[in-house]
Simulated assay, not measured.
Amino acid sequence: MKKILFPTDFSEVATNAFVHALEFAKIVQGELILLHSYDLPVFDEQFFHENFKEIYDSLELLQFDLFKDEIPKLRTIADGHHLGKIKMTHRLMGGDLTSNIKKAIQEDEIDFVVMGTSGATDWDAFFVGSKSGSVIMGIDVPMLCIPLGAKHKKIKTIGYRTRFKDEDKIALKKVLNIAKKTNANVKCLYVKTQYSDISKDTIEKWEKEFEQEPIAFFVVTGDEIKDIVLDFVLEKKIDVLTMLTYKRGVFADIFKPRFAVNNTPNFEIPILEIPVD
Rank of each mutant, 00 (worst) to 15 (best):
F10Y: 15
L189D: 09
I86G: 08
V220I: 14
V113G: 06
F48N: 13
T202R: 14
M88I: 11
I269M: 11
T245W: 03
K226H: 13
E70P: 04
N16I: 03
K102N: 11
L92K: 09
I86H: 01
D69G: 08
H82D: 14
G94M: 04
K103E: 13
S130C: 08
V250R: 15
K131W: 07
V261G: 00
F43Q: 02
A150I: 09
A171V: 12
F112I: 04
I86N: 07
V229L: 15
K181W: 00
L22C: 09
A14G: 09
S134H: 15
C188A: 15
K208H: 13
G94P: 06
Y160D: 00
A25Y: 03
K156W: 00
N263I: 01
I254K: 01
A21F: 00
F112K: 03
I178H: 09
V219W: 01
K73Y: 01
C145T: 15
T182Q: 13
G80E: 14
H20T: 07
D201P: 04
D9E: 08
V135D: 07
K187T: 12
V28A: 05
C188P: 07
L272H: 03
G159W: 02
F255P: 02
T264A: 01
M88N: 05
A260Q: 05
T182G: 09
A184S: 13
L40N: 08
F232I: 05
E224M: 05
E45M: 11
R91S: 09
I136C: 02
E268M: 06
E109K: 14
I146G: 04
F48W: 12
D253Y: 11
K73A: 06
K103N: 12
D44N: 15
N16M: 02
E45R: 14
E268V: 02
P270R: 10
K169W: 00
G249Q: 12
D44H: 13
P214T: 10
G149I: 00
C145E: 08
I254A: 10
V233C: 09
A25D: 03
T15H: 02
D201K: 15
G138K: 15
